[in-house]
Amino acid sequence: MAFRPSGSSMVPLIRSRQQVVVAPVDPSKPEIGDIVLARAAGTVHLHSVSSLDPARKRVQISNNRGRVNGWTSHDRVFGICVAVDGVTRPKVADKTLAADSNDSS
Protein backbone atom coordinates (compact mmCIF):
# COMPACT_ATOMS: atom_id res chain seq x y z
CA MET A 1 0.00 0.00 0.00
CA ALA A 2 1.38 3.42 -0.95
CA PHE A 3 0.23 6.69 0.60
CA ARG A 4 1.45 10.19 1.52
CA PRO A 5 1.25 10.83 5.27
CA SER A 6 1.25 14.40 6.51
CA GLY A 7 2.99 15.83 9.55
CA SER A 8 6.51 16.42 10.80
CA SER A 9 6.86 13.86 13.59
CA MET A 10 9.10 11.55 11.54
CA VAL A 11 11.41 14.16 9.94
CA PRO A 12 14.06 13.57 8.59
CA LEU A 13 13.18 9.89 7.98
CA ILE A 14 9.83 10.78 6.42
CA ARG A 15 8.85 14.31 5.45
CA SER A 16 5.25 15.44 5.14
CA ARG A 17 3.59 14.20 1.93
CA GLN A 18 6.48 11.97 0.84
CA GLN A 19 5.20 8.75 -0.67
CA VAL A 20 5.68 5.75 1.61
CA VAL A 21 5.12 2.12 0.80
CA VAL A 22 3.95 -0.13 3.63
CA ALA A 23 3.84 -3.93 3.34
CA PRO A 24 2.24 -6.50 5.64
CA VAL A 25 4.71 -7.52 8.32
CA ASP A 26 5.41 -10.49 10.53
CA PRO A 27 4.87 -8.57 13.80
CA SER A 28 7.50 -10.61 15.62
CA LYS A 29 10.24 -9.42 13.25
CA PRO A 30 10.47 -5.59 13.50
CA GLU A 31 13.59 -4.31 15.21
CA ILE A 32 14.34 -1.06 16.99
CA GLY A 33 14.48 1.69 14.37
CA ASP A 34 12.09 0.05 11.90
CA ILE A 35 9.13 2.20 10.86
CA VAL A 36 5.81 0.44 11.34
CA LEU A 37 2.15 1.19 10.83
CA ALA A 38 0.58 0.35 14.18
CA ARG A 39 -2.27 1.23 16.51
CA ALA A 40 -1.17 2.59 19.88
CA ALA A 41 -3.19 4.56 22.41
CA GLY A 42 -6.23 4.44 20.11
CA THR A 43 -4.56 5.99 17.06
CA VAL A 44 -2.85 4.48 14.02
CA HIS A 45 0.69 5.81 13.64
CA LEU A 46 3.48 5.43 11.10
CA HIS A 47 6.28 5.61 13.66
CA SER A 48 9.51 3.93 14.72
CA VAL A 49 9.88 0.89 16.92
CA SER A 50 11.66 2.22 20.02
CA SER A 51 11.63 -0.85 22.27
CA LEU A 52 10.80 -4.56 22.10
CA ASP A 53 9.14 -6.91 24.58
CA PRO A 54 9.17 -10.32 22.85
CA ALA A 55 8.03 -12.18 25.99
CA ARG A 56 4.77 -10.18 26.04
CA LYS A 57 4.56 -10.02 22.22
CA ARG A 58 4.53 -6.24 21.98
CA VAL A 59 6.50 -3.28 20.66
CA GLN A 60 6.82 0.32 21.77
CA ILE A 61 6.46 2.95 19.08
CA SER A 62 7.70 6.53 19.07
CA ASN A 63 7.94 9.42 16.67
CA ASN A 64 11.31 10.80 15.56
CA ARG A 65 11.07 13.77 17.93
CA GLY A 66 11.34 11.90 21.22
CA ARG A 67 7.63 11.33 21.93
CA VAL A 68 6.73 7.78 22.94
CA ASN A 69 3.27 6.76 21.70
CA GLY A 70 3.17 3.65 23.85
CA TRP A 71 3.25 -0.12 23.80
CA THR A 72 1.14 -2.10 21.40
CA SER A 73 0.61 -5.81 20.90
CA HIS A 74 1.85 -7.65 17.83
CA ASP A 75 -1.72 -7.99 16.52
CA ARG A 76 -1.89 -4.19 16.22
CA VAL A 77 1.23 -3.90 14.07
CA PHE A 78 -0.26 -3.79 10.57
CA GLY A 79 2.73 -3.14 8.33
CA ILE A 80 6.32 -2.06 7.91
CA CYS A 81 7.57 0.85 5.82
CA VAL A 82 9.57 -0.65 2.96
CA ALA A 83 10.23 2.52 0.92
CA VAL A 84 10.13 6.32 1.18
CA ASP A 85 9.90 8.26 -2.09
CA GLY A 86 11.13 5.22 -4.00
CA VAL A 87 14.14 4.58 -1.75
CA THR A 88 14.04 1.16 -0.12
CA ARG A 89 14.38 1.12 3.66
CA PRO A 90 17.28 -1.00 4.97
CA LYS A 91 16.78 -4.47 6.43
CA VAL A 92 13.06 -4.89 5.73
CA ALA A 93 12.83 -7.57 3.02
CA ASP A 94 12.88 -10.56 5.38
CA LYS A 95 10.26 -8.97 7.67
CA THR A 96 7.38 -8.71 5.20
CA LEU A 97 4.70 -11.31 4.71
CA ALA A 98 4.18 -12.79 1.25
CA ALA A 99 0.68 -12.52 -0.16
CA ASP A 100 -1.22 -15.78 0.26
CA SER A 101 -1.51 -17.20 -3.23
CA ASN A 102 -4.20 -19.65 -2.05
CA ASP A 103 -6.53 -16.89 -0.86
CA SER A 104 -9.82 -17.37 -2.70
CA SER A 105 -11.73 -14.47 -1.19
Rank of each mutant, 00 (worst) to 15 (best):
M1K: 11
F3R: 00
F3S: 01
R4N: 15
P5C: 03
S6Q: 13
G7C: 05
L13G: 08
R15A: 15
R17F: 14
R17H: 04
Q19A: 12
Q19H: 07
V21W: 03
A23H: 13
D26C: 06
P27S: 12
E31I: 14
I32K: 13
I32C: 02
G33Q: 12
G33P: 06
V36I: 08
A40G: 00
A41V: 13
A41M: 11
V44N: 15
S48T: 10
D53H: 14
P54A: 13
P54I: 14
R56S: 05
R56F: 08
Q60V: 09
S62Y: 05
S62K: 08
N64Y: 11
R65C: 03
V68F: 05
V68Y: 00
W71Q: 04
W71P: 02
T72W: 07
D75I: 04
R76D: 01
C81M: 10
V82P: 09
V84A: 00
D85E: 11
G86N: 07
G86P: 01
V87S: 06
P90D: 04
K91W: 06
D94N: 04
T96N: 02
A98K: 14
D100L: 09
S101N: 04
S101E: 01
S101D: 04
S101R: 12
N102I: 03
N102E: 15
S105D: 10
